[in-house]
């Protein structure tokens, strides 16, 4: 597979594509674009087929699409500049919009599904400074919305359901809130880690914000690979990616390593397992990074357009 990359040259989108996400099984690809549409492709081997275009609902660029864990059904969330978060579901081959969330006052930049163990939760990061967490429960959607970064929230990413250092998942029983925890990155150059607080039934700041970036934090990504440490990567306008690690032994302490780029970095993403970091930057480059045992991060692959 490494030999050839599969290319969809003509996506059918009339404008720039902002996000392209494969579903859990790698069988479907959802894309979204400034043309205000979302397209869903079916990937079969080396070929792909456009099976659906969702349009006419977003009033602005669609920034982000995200597949829910399949155990909750074929559910896709989309978010865009129009501040809306839309939830779509496929049933019997047809896609329906099942929920509109329009409480944000500005662009919703990223939506992110929680690990399925924690429930069917969708965190939304908005430029209006708020983070909302939608929860699909008992066939209805509830939401919590709170102020996270005054200058705007650019990204949100959930912590894995399992705590670092444990081999066996500390599986929360049904009904428990599990490890509801996520990191946000904002235009205030900060990262903030939030935890669900059952006492207040809301999310609270777990610790002081992580500082270091000197410009917007464009993206954050919490690695879902459970190793000895927790890994958070943050991509910033300041042309760096910072990798924050926290040892299981010192859960509150985050150490930071800086990867320098020659352009602003927009997105970071961890491989589902394996702790490989992909970072995409302004210069149309995607670079893959791996940590060696000395704790150094090495660029293992560069994909250039």
């Amino acid at each position: 597979m490494t030999a050839g990359a599969q290319v969809i040259a003509n996506s059918g989108h009339d404008d720039m594509i902002h996000d392209a996400v494969l579903d859990y099984y790698g069988r479907r690809l959802a894309t979204c674009s400034s043309d205000r549409t979302i397209k869903i492709f079916e990937i079969e081997g080396e070929s792909q087929r456009l099976i659906e275009t969702l349009k006419g609902t977003h009033d602005g660029a669609v920034w982000c699409v995200a597949w829910a864990h399949p155990k909750y059904g074929n559910i896709l969330a989309s978010a865009g500049y129009d501040g809306k978060v839309l939830i779509w579901r496929e049933q019997a081959g047809s896609w329906q919009r099942i929920f509109d969330f329009a409480l944000h006052k500005a662009s919703v930049n990223i939506v992110s599904w929680s690990p399925h163990e924690a429930g069917c939760l969708l965190a939304c990061a908005s430029s209006d400074g708020n983070v909302s967490v939608l929860e699909f429960k008992d066939n209805s959607w509830e939401h919590k919305i709170f102020h996270a970064h005054g200058l705007g929230v650019n990204s949100v990413s959930w912590a894995p359901a399992t705590t670092p250092g444990s081999i066996v998942s500390s599986n929360p029983g049904p009904g428990s809130t599990g490890n509801r925890r996520f990191v946000t990155g904002g235009s205030d150059n900060l990262l903030k880690i939030w935890t669900f607080d059952p006492a207040t039934n809301g999310y609270k700041l777990e610790r002081e914000p992580l500082t270091g970036h000197t410009d917007w934090v464009r993206d954050v990504a919490w690695s879902s690979t459970v190793l000895q440490k927790s890994y958070i990567a943050s991509a910033s306008q300041d042309k760096t990616v910072r990798i924050w690690t926290s040892d299981a032994a010192n859960p509150g302490e985050w150490k930071c390593k800086v990867l320098n780029f020659d352009a602003a970095v927009w997105r970071v993403s961890w491989s589902l397992s394996g702790n490989v970091l992909a970072a995409s930057s302004d210069n149309n480059k995607v670079t893959l990074w791996k940590e060696n045992l000395k704790g150094e991060w090495e660029n293992v692959k560069t994909i250039e357009e």
Partner: peptide, 30 residues
């Protein structure tokens, strides 16, 4: 349209329609 600072920068020749190419490549970690 969304302001540039929210959107990924893209270089387009004036008048040319912006478009994207999708590329799926795989990488084996180990």
């Amino acid at each position: 349209r969304a302001p540039a600072w929210i959107e990924r920068p893209v270089e387009t020749a004036p008048g040319q329609k912006r478009s994207s190419k999708l590329q799926i490549s795989s990488f084996s970690i180990d």
